[in-house]
Design a protein around this nucleic acid. Structure first.
Lengths: 262, 262
DNA sequence: AACAAATTGTCAAATAATGAGATTTTCATT
DNA sequence: AATGAAAATCTCATTATTTGACAATTTGTT
């Protein structure tokens, strides 16, 4: 095991135990000698990933907040989505959320709280299950076949358990249906009593970048015209796409595989 | 230089260039051989601090968002402050911000947007200057003497430039005045045309944990009764303190230096 | 299918990480 | 201010790990 990996174990530990741990606890927990543990801690503190908090305890550091800022500040989808999401909140009285796939995870990247400020289990930063919830379903449905199939292999059981298809052809069919509808709905899948209606956001080359959703209390959802609500969410997604194309900032500059140097 | 340090250089680079860089650029920029660069990248990807984004580029990863969540979810000050800040926004029509010192930095830890959703240069995650702005002034003013003096040594020039005192005694006097007032005001110090009124938040042992502020357009600020606004902010700070003492969650369990093992 | 770029092995030389124990610094308390 | 215990750092010989040139492989595009 590399020292790099060992050092990151400190971060993992701090994330689990969350608040703050003293150096000796960290060393003991991870089985490092005192100097080694202190070296790792010093390194992480120097990087700002850890801070020393009153007395001899260490907690997660400000650099994380700064890096998070860097992500937010440079995410073209987020920039385009925020005003649209505000409008969506205003129009529906629910909350709006935005999620993206990050490698193999689905992560909520923005939560625009509505007047009720619903408590969501999967607010910003909570990794969501890959195969549950309207946002995940959208992200899955519009993924390229190859990735869809890879994920199906990994999550076959969960997919079946969530009635998204007993096998690969059935799953494909379910995804095709979502694509045909243009949106996905989940009722109480992530939080009991809450409904989400989500639609995909594509970039100008047609690949899914994210998904937007409105989240509403079930009672309120039932009072609304479902078709109209879905249309509103899809329209929001389209408006986000449009805002992304309008280069308020520099274009994302997607990298192409280039020819060898001459 | 340790491999740990070198690996973090990758994070630094990604944060600066922000969007995404391909492996070769990273190696070239940092002077690593290709296998070494790839090893570092692989390590960071495994930790989730980096992600592979379409093609051969790497960007900041979802783990950062998750760690940020861990910070937010476990910050007792933030939990106590959020509802109070919402109320402050509702009462004033401005935005509310919360900042804390993290080691040697001052970082905005929460921004509760108001109806105008002001664009602040120092929204969440942007490290703020130590000696400018109402929030920083509060944090400085209520710090223990020792830390105050250390910071004064480091930032003497900036402190002088910002008229917080030409030398240590003058600075101390200025800080004493802020303490006597109970709040700090900054007019256009961080953003031209914006005013911030801030008050300190202490823990039950009396040390400053954070500072809350309302941020308003200058025009609106001038229409308001300044004394009453200051009183409102100070009251908010007190309510946050009170909410922190009310243990909705488990107590923070501050660690004491304990006697040696028997 | 064919190609080029991107990524991952291989392996010996060299460098850097490690831990026991001693030592120094820090800091709450007297 | 002085104290004393805990926290953090230092020293150094031993050992394991990292490193980079080169080759092989995988991946993704035309």
């Amino acid at each position: 095991m590399s020292s790099l990996t060992r050092m990151f174990a400190v971060l993992d530990l701090l994330e689990q135990r969350a608040l703050a741990l003293d150096a000796d606890t960290i060393c003991a927990e991870l089985g490092y000698s005192r100097p080694t543990g202190y070296r790792y801690i010093a390194e992480l503190v120097r990087a700002g990933l850890l801070v020393r908090v009153g007395g001899g305890a260490y907690g997660l550091g400000p650099r994380i907040i700064e890096l998070d800022y860097a992500i937010r500040a440079n995410d073209p989808v987020l920039a385009a989505a925020q005003p649209v999401m505000r409008a969506l909140v205003a129009a529906t009285g629910g909350d709006a959320t935005l999620a993206a796939t990050y490698g193999e995870h689905v992560v909520t990247t923005h939560h625009e709280a509505g007047p009720e400020a619903l408590i969501l289990s999967y607010g910003r930063g909570r990794p969501m299950p890959m195969v549950r919830g309207a946002l995940s379903k959208c992200l899955l449905a519009w993924m390229p076949r190859a990735r869809q199939q890879r994920l199906h292999k990994i999550h076959a059981k969960e997919i079946k358990a969530n009635r998204l298809g007993a096998d690969w052809p059935a799953f494909r069919a379910a995804m095709a249906q979502v694509r045909k509808d243009g949106y996905a709905v989940s009722i109480g899948e992530l939080d009991p009593g809450l409904v989400a209606v989500a639609a995909p956001v594509h970039d100008d080359e047609g690949s899914v970048q994210a998904a937007v959703a409105v989240v509403l209390r079930l009672a309120r959802y039932e009072l609304l015209d479902h078709a109209q609500l879905a249309a509103l969410v899809m329209d929001s997604a389209r408006r986000i796409e449009h805002a992304m194309r309008t280069p308020a900032l520099a274009a994302p500059a997607k990298k192409k595989r280039t020819k060898a140097k001459p």
